[in-house]
């Protein structure tokens, strides 16, 4: 918990996690997917420690699985065994991390290429101008 509180409560600024890249190794009928993630900062130069974020894997048939990755600081990686070969890996698809401005998607393409799609949420709800304490 110290990593979370030191960054989000006792420190300034924000962070965001994105998938840097991933690679797939077939293991029989399954697939080992090694995912490399990175932490990006806004308003601070000090990286959060003890980070956690959800990764959602999706294949071309829209099969999905969500797993959690934990890593110590600015970068991290982990390998997940999946029953399908993902076409994309998304961070925090279900909007649980709180500090994620876009949903960052890393998409697999022909060898040597990766594309990052950034989807911004544009929904803005009005808030009544009421003083509340």
């Amino acid at each position: 918990m110290s990593g979370f509180f030191d960054f989000h409560v006792f420190g300034p600024g924000f962070n965001q996690f994105s998938v840097d890249s991933f690679r797939i190794v077939p293991i029989g009928d399954e697939f080992d997917v090694e995912v490399f993630v990175k932490q990006r900062l806004k308003g601070t130069t000090v990286y959060a420690q003890n980070c956690r974020v959800e990764l959602t894997f999706m294949d071309n048939d829209r099969q999905m699985e969500t797993r959690r990755i934990s890593f110590p600081g600015p970068h991290g990686s982990a390998t997940f065994r999946l029953p399908f070969a993902p076409a994309i890996v998304m961070t925090d698809l279900f909007e649980r991390a709180g500090m994620q401005p876009p949903t960052a998607i890393k998409r697999s393409t022909p060898p040597g290429f990766t594309i990052t799609l950034i989807l911004f949420s544009s929904l803005m709800l009005p808030r009544s101008p009421i003083l509340l304490l």
Partner: peptide
């Protein structure tokens, strides 16, 4: 989520 998104955008 629709409540949290604009809040998050405002904050960031």
């Amino acid at each position: 989520r629709e409540n949290m998104r604009p809040l998050l955008r405002e904050v960031l």
